[in-house]
């Protein structure tokens, strides 16, 4: 554990909490993509199957449980409790176009061809692109509430901080994992346009609105 890794995890945790607060306080999931949230739930479940096979640390176990539980809590709020506020019409991204290619890629490029390992790799690939339905939704509506922007910024920062963690681990421990680095880089690049808008608009107190 190094400072970048810890900051990344905390940023990830903050993102999830911000999202739950937004939905709970406004009693609405308007502007949030249910499709992205479904993908994140798939990511956590397929990656954290090792909860039942390998014990790494109490921290590791707790964080995994928090990520899985909170993603299902978010889905419950969106698809059950506050279903009426869910933005169906704008959330039209076809997630099978992400799920299938990621799965095929995981079958082809992985560290070892075992069920757990392929699912772990699948989750890494899927996480890289899981935010696309959300970004698609923002681009369709042309705007995002400020708390939604903070959520996206924290979520994007998490993988960017992991990139720094991987650079650190390469120099400090000689450890690197090309699958994770490649997917993490793609994931971070997808947020770049959003980061730019966040820094130039939201941080200056303006609403995130895309140019017409």
């Amino acid at each position: 554990m190094n400072i970048f890794r810890l900051a990344g995890d905390l940023s990830h945790l903050l993102a999830i909490i911000l999202l739950l607060i937004k939905i709970w306080k406004t009693r609405s999931c308007a502007g949030i993509s249910g499709k992205s949230q479904i993908l994140f739930a798939v990511v956590y479940v397929s990656r954290y199957l090792d909860l039942v096979t390998t014990f790494i640390s109490l921290y590791n176990t707790l964080m995994k449980l928090v990520f899985i539980t909170s993603s299902f809590a978010t889905l419950y709020l969106m698809y059950v409790k506050f279903k009426a506020t869910y933005d169906h019409n704008h959330d039209s991204f076809r997630i099978e176009f992400l799920l299938l290619p990621c799965f095929v890629l995981a079958l082809l490029i992985n560290a070892s061809f075992t069920p757990l390992e392929v699912l772990w790799t699948f989750s890494i690939y899927l996480e890289a692109v899981a935010i696309l339905p959300q970004l698609f939704l923002v681009s369709k509506t042309g705007e995002a509430e400020s708390i939604t922007s903070h959520y996206l910024f924290a979520l994007g920062s998490y993988r960017a901080l992991y990139l720094l963690n991987w650079i650190y681990r390469y120099y400090a421990e000689g450890h690197y994992d090309l699958i994770a680095i490649f997917a993490g880089a793609i994931q971070t690049i997808l947020y770049c346009d959003f980061f730019y808008l966040y820094i130039t608009k939201v941080l200056k107190g303006k609403k995130l609105q895309l140019p017409a």
Partner: peptide, 10 residues
């Protein structure tokens, strides 16, 4: 193992 170390990440 090199790759196994990645599994301690989240």
């Amino acid at each position: 193992m090199q790759h196994e170390n990645s599994h301690d990440e989240l």
